[in-house]
Every structure is written in C-alpha cells, then in structure tokens.
Nucleic acid binder design. Structure first.
Length: 127
RNA sequence: UUGUGCGGAUGUGGCGACCGCCCCGCCAUGCGGGGAGGAAAGUCCGAACACGGCAGGACACGGUGGUGGGUAACGCCCACCCGAUUCGCCCGGCUUGCCGGGCGGAUUGAGGGACAGUGCCACAGAAAACAAACCGCCUACGUCUCACGGCUUGUCCGCGAGGCCGGCAAGGGUGAAAAGGUGCGGUAAGAGCGCACCGCCGCGCUGGUGACAGGGCGGGCAUGGUAAACCCCACCGCGUGCAAGACCAAGCAGCGACGAUGGACUGGUCCGGUCCGAUUGAGUCGCGGGUAGGUCGCUUGAGCCCGUGGGUGACCGCGGGCCUAGAGAAAUGGUCGCCCCGUGUGAUUCGUCAUGCGGAACAGGAUUCGGCUUACGAUCCGCACACCCCA
RNA sequence: CGGGGUGUAGCUCAGCUUGGUAGAGCGCGUCGUUCGGGUCGACGAGGCCGUAGGUUCAAAUCCUAUCACCCCGA
C-alpha cells in the first residue's frame, strides 16, 4: 500500500509498438496463422523487434464511430497491460466482428488465450 | 398538480491518486502547455481555396421562384404582403342552424405565369372545356289533331287537352371538378334577362421603394383544374474536388493494333483561344511492368468573447481583449477513492444514518467556414391539450 | 473523405419515362393425367410497392426527408 511496486516493466504503448504500414499488415496476413476468440480473430507472426506489436482492424460493420473507438480503446488497453505477459516478439493483428462491447477483463482474457494458442502453433511448426 | 405534444436554452457534475495516448515548447532518460460536438452526423445547399495555359461567347442542361432587406454567398435568416385552416367578436340573409361579409388572434404555405402555346382530366355522367341537353320545366310564338262554347257559319274567334317543331338551364342525378354566388324583380317556363350587395375582367386615380391596398369609372361576365406535366418569364450556375494540388526521394520494360484538314487542353455540342503533329508517328486502344514512402497544403479564421452605438429585426459599425485539436492503420482512455445528484432497501430519537445500484441520450474531428435537415436522456422556460383539486 | 446506384409476391426481376388495372418466371397449394413419382395441363393463394410527409380529384410512378444495402475513386 505505502510501498509502490518497483517494476522494471514499463507499460507504455507508443507508436513503435503498433503496426503502421501496409507491408506490416500484409506480412502478418500472409502467414495465415489465425485463432478465433469470441468476436475476435487474432493473426500472429514472430518479428525481430524484440517486443510485441499490435495492429487493429475494425470495420464499419462493428458499429458507428463511437462504438468502434470504444472497442479499439479496450483492445489497446488490454494489450498495454498484458504486453509483458503475452508471448514476446510477435506482431499481432486483431480483427473485430460485430458484437456488443465487452468489459476490459473479457478482452484481456480473450487476447491472452488466443495469443498463447498461436505461440504453440508456431512452436510446433518450427520444430 | 401531473402527464403528453410542439418550440427554445443548457449539453456526461466537482476534486484527487496511479497507469497510459496525440501534438507543441524547453535548460530534454524529464518538465510545462494544449487536446471532440450541438449536432463533429446525414452530405441537402452555399462559399473559401487548389488545379484545368486563359476561364470567354452561344445553344443545351440544371437550379431558384410573392416583395423588400441581411450576407462573401445561398435553396439560409429577418421584416412585410397575399392565400389557406382554425378560434373569438360583430353585421347581414334566410329554409333557425347553416350561408356570406368585416375585424382581431393563433397556426401554416416549394407563394411567378393556366386570356403565349401544347398535353392530360381514368371511372361515373347527357355533357369534362370556342359547351351541351338525360330526367325534368314550358305551350307565349308557329303548326297539326280532338273536345267544348260564341255567331258574323268562316281557311273565323275564344277556351281546354294532346302531339310536332321548338323554348329553358332553375331543380334532379354523376363526379374531385358541371361554366359566378345570394336575394328581389321578371317570364309561358326560365336565365346576368334587369336591379342591389359580394366576386370577376378592363381602364385610369390615390398611398406605398415594392409585393399590394383603398376607393372611382366602365363591362353583365367572358377567363374550370393541373406548371412537385411539357413549357414561358426573370435571376443564378465553367468543370473537378484536399484522394484538389505542389515538391522531394525511390523504382521500372516494353510489346501489339489503329492512326491524319488529325489530336490534346472540356465537360453535352459549336465558336473563339493555346499547344502538339505528317509515317524517322501527335495521339488512341489493348496487354505487360514500377511505385503506394516523406515534406508542404494544415489551421489566424467572412474567428471567438466583452463593452458601446445604429437598426422593428436579420445584422452592421467602432473600441478593447484572446489564440482555441491538427494527428494520418489516425490521440483525448482505464482503474480507484472522496464529495455531489437520482433511486431502492433497512434502521430511526423523524434531524438523519448505514448500505446497494446508477450518473445517462444522440453521438466523435479527417481542408476550412456559413446554413439546412435529422437524432437526443435529464433539468429549466414558453404555448396547446388532457386529468386532478379548490371556488 | 468524395462520387454513384438499388429497395415491388418466399426468390430473381418488369412496370416509373407519359400519374388512374400491380405483372412475368421460378417456387407454394388444390385438382387432373400415372400403379406411384417426375413431366405436362387446369385452377388458386400470396403485396400497407423500404419508411414518413407533401403536390394532385387520384401516387409504386412526381417532389422532399429518412432508413437499409451495394459499387467506384489515390
């Protein structure tokens, strides 16, 4: 309580940790490794950055601009808080289909299970 | 008092802690400052700005449509005019519960022209647009037949009934609409046939910037509806849109067909203007190849606030103050605590206390402004209606 | 962000230009044909023309707003 947790982890989420170009997205999509988790489809592919990066794809079918923004904020916040617990060194793309927005904890749980399944799949393919 | 509808105003409360996001600045591992809306929405209008070398003319096409004003401009806003609906009061008429007129209030109108022309008006109905006559009404005039009466015995007169030729458009009926309305006179019956009032048309007068209003003279009346049908008139409009466009960097590969008073700039056509071009090929079409990175445009603007003056008002002038997102796979969020508000439950010494839930609707900048339209929880204000209470 | 289009029977569409009767094919139901089914033939049901206003005597059609879906543009 009176001693704040001393952590070496930082929970920032700046522009370097996002997928920003057409090539970034195309490279992950072309790996064609995808897991479904509730309303989310998560694509994953290892990168050589040494940290995880996130890209979001939320089409207009999900809802109007307000609900799209809300979903994207939830997913970014989930990734930000979980970024040291998720499998390290991957590029992720989360594609969202139409649904009612969920709580933050639900998105965190969905993201965690999908990324762990993807890592197992990559390890099997590598070995 | 409560509820509903319409119109208007406000637009997710305050403080703090931690973890974060976008932009800017600095004495730069950090610190400081700024960070969604009234509709940011729909993209329905109008502009700014950019490019098309110039942005010009005619036709076509599209838009707007009472008048005057506001504005950079508008299809927006303001004031006024006119019409429609409704309510109240007054007057007149009669068939006494309806019709007509005047005044006032409220609401409302995409509100130029239907005597420039063309088209359409289904069904019903006799007739749907230089009127006509189904039922009906009439027998005065003309004529025929029959009955009766008269005396001057006739191709006579009177009277009555019926028919024909006719007269009429009041009433019935049809329809969304039937060719001015009401009343009186008039007539064989009727009718603007005549008159009064109202309406309509023409001419001129007065008032008003004007739409228009008022009254005068003349005309018995012609001129149905539809222009959110074509169209006519007046006014406006060149096209494309920040994915406009300017610059930098990177990268590639060409091949085939067609092709000449031809092609490009412009789009629907033509004119004007500019440029390119003649088989060593302007350009068009098809196939194929390369790039999808960066900087600028990018936020100081018909800007906002306050005061003051002018104007009925929209709005405008003057003075002072302020700088208020500018990112581009695209930011303004999450967790928690306290206060505050609403509400449920329990306790209560009726002052409150404890605890649970909720703090919201419509919705988020994407070049920028001015409008319009649509969406919207709660609170407040105004109007209308309903209900309840009191008198 | 900008530009354009479509909503009509269960499905695919016509009708809208020039306003008065809502139609076609497939599908569905009943009957006939057949031993039975298919094919074929006859008859029939099924529509607030996406929604809401307006113009008109009259609107699927004309005008305005709104909702949903689809396409195109560096």
């Amino acid at each position: 309580m009176n001693s704040p947790p001393i952590t070496t982890h930082r929970f920032g989420f700046d522009r370097r940790k996002r997928l920003r170009t057409r090539e970034d997205f195309a490279r992950v999509y072309q790996a064609r490794i995808v897991k479904r988790a509730g309303p989310l489809r998560v694509y994953g592919k290892p990168n050589d950055c040494g940290y995880g990066r996130l890209g979001l794809s939320v089409s207009a079918r999900v809802g109007n601009a307000v609900t799209r923004n809300k979903v994207k904020r939830m997913l970014r916040e989930s990734f930000r808080l979980l970024q040291h617990d998720l499998p390290n060194g991957y590029d992720w793309i989360v594609v969202v289909s139409r649904h009612e927005p969920l709580e933050l904890a639900d998105y965190q749980r969905l993201l965690m299970s999908a990324t762990q399944q993807l890592e197992r799949q990559w390890n099997r393919a590598g070995s």
